[in-house]
Write a protein that binds this DNA or RNA. Structure first.
Length: 421
RNA sequence: GUGGCUGUAGCUCAGGUAGGUAGAGCACCGCGUUGUGGUCGCGGCGGUCGCGGGUUCAAAUCCCGUCAGCCACCCCA
């Protein structure tokens, strides 16, 4: 490593070309799909009042331990968003959109102060959607399908959809109690860590990966056995909808999610191509009580967030969705030392032809080497004799058609045709 | 947050377990071709061996600390 006085903060990194272009292409693909389904783009602030997030996850590490929060210059307690659902719901409550359901998609960085690992960064990026104002199971199906179709659009095949229902206000408390009783009776057999988790939220004990907890978790009561008729019906409608779309899913009765606000339908997308523990490439669910807890009218909501960085890692593992090709159409060389290269490059670019060129008055051999390195299929050579006669030399860098003399007036037209092919 | 592994040129890595003052391949630059690339040949640039301290006549090499990355736990996207 060359010595440099500063480096990016822990868990944060510079995403450079061509990875940055690849990430943008991913977001473009997502925006396209979301647009096809009638979702509008929302760009919300990166920082919010701390309270926006406190309401949504008081028993979660995301909110209690990992949040980047600080006091603003006027004393307000603010936080860099650790997730986007809360921000979007805050925006929904604030603007009270007249026509429901309100459907939005988003993309952007989020911050969590965790110990970094591959696929887990302190600043990470997600794409996602949220729908507020309808609890029609068709909405659940549309949301899940959009996530699924997105992975497909990227070429990913090794994604598993895990599905569960966490119940609603009427049935969840009963399940919660049953689970708490069950775990408390066996607390001594649980790992120390799980005993702590039990105090905060018995549901989350189900998430433990510690070997000593597995036997107890395996026999724990299941939410599905506690669902009210109405909730069970909703869940059945969601499953049936997914089946009619041919979207495969796996019922995962112990799937719980990281944030407290989830109700009824919850789901996670896991990549089987990722071998490490960071194999969840997306997740989401219903949060029918969130709008109300942020001061709005009771409004059902559902959404998901997909981890951009992890998706890209999974794409690498599957060998799909490569970075976009940045090869220029044309490379302009100049040995006259005039402004001709500058002018011609500009003309071509304005005609929609991508152009790279040589700088610093290097000799022709060097310029050709650069043209070769960037793999431009065409080279425009500006020399003394050509320039004097109002011409330019056009060289085919790939094929064997050699090079021809082209009048400067016809260069743009000639190259436009060639590049189009 | 806990434990472990790793950190040498832009990249991938050797050297470290017998301390003696840094190497390879690729990449980059130049020459062979005073206006023509890809191959080949020759030459060159490039590192205070993550950082700080200690032991020693001498440290990339041993010791301590620290920072960063990775792995498991945790958490979750």
């Amino acid at each position: 490593m060359a010595k440099s006085k500063f480096q990016a903060l822990r868990g944060m990194r510079d995403i450079m070309s061509p990875d940055a272009e690849r990430q943008r292409a991913l977001v473009d693909a997502f925006a396209h799909l979301a647009g096809l389904s009638g979702y509008g783009h929302i760009m919300s602030p990166i920082v919010e009042d701390l309270g926006v997030f406190l309401r949504v996850g008081e028993s979660t590490d995301v909110v209690t331990k990992e949040m980047y929060d600080f006091e603003d210059k006027d004393g307000t307690r603010i936080a860099m968003r650790p997730e986007l659902t809360a921000s979007v719901v805050r925006a929904f409550v604030q603007h009270n959109p007249p026509s429901l359901p309100w459907k939005v998609w988003y993309e952007g960085p989020q911050f969590r102060h965790e110990r970094p690992q591959a696929g887990r960064y302190r600043q990470f990026s997600q794409v996602g959607i949220e729908v507020l104002g309808s609890d029609d199971p068709a909405v659940d199906v549309e949301v899940i399908a959009l996530g699924w179709r997105f992975y497909q659009a990227l070429g990913m095949n090794e994604v598993t959809l895990l599905l569960n229902s966490l119940g609603d206000d009427t049935c969840r408390p009963q399940y919660f109690d049953a689970l708490e009783t069950y775990f408390r009776d066996r607390a001594s057999e649980l790992s120390e860590k799980s005993q702590e988790t039990l105090e905060k939220n018995p549901l989350r004990v189900l998430d433990s990966k510690r070997a000593e907890d597995q036997a107890i978790i395996a026999d724990a009561p299941l939410m599905v056995d506690f669902l009210t008729d109405e909730t069970a019906e909703h869940f059945a409608a969601v499953r049936s909808g997914l089946e009619s779309l041919g979207i495969p899913y796996e019922i995962s009765p112990r799937l719980v999610r990281g944030l407290d606000y989830y109700t009824r339908t919850t789901f996670e997308f896991a990549s089987t191509a990722l071998e490490n523990a960071q194999n969840a490439v997306g997740g989401g669910g219903r949060y029918d009580g969130l709008a109300e807890s942020l001061g709005g009218k009771p409004t059902p909501g559902i959404g998901f967030a997909l981890g951009v960085d992890r998706i890209l890692l999974a794409c690498d593992a599957e060998g799909v969705f490569p970075a976009p090709d940045l090869t220029p159409d044309v490379f302009v060389l100049d040995v006259t030392g005039t402004e001709a290269a500058t002018v011609i490059a500009d003309e071509l670019r304005m005609a929609g032809i991508s152009v790279e060129r040589a700088y610093d008055g290097r000799n022709m051999r060097s310029q050709m080497k650069v043209a070769n390195r960037v793999e431009a299929p065409w080279a425009v050579i500006i020399g003394e004799t050509e320039l004097a006669e109002g011409n330019v030399t056009l060289r085919d860098m790939h094929g064997d058609s050699g090079q021809t003399l082209v009048s400067r007036d016809e260069l743009v037209a000639t190259l436009s045709t060639k590049v189009a092919n």
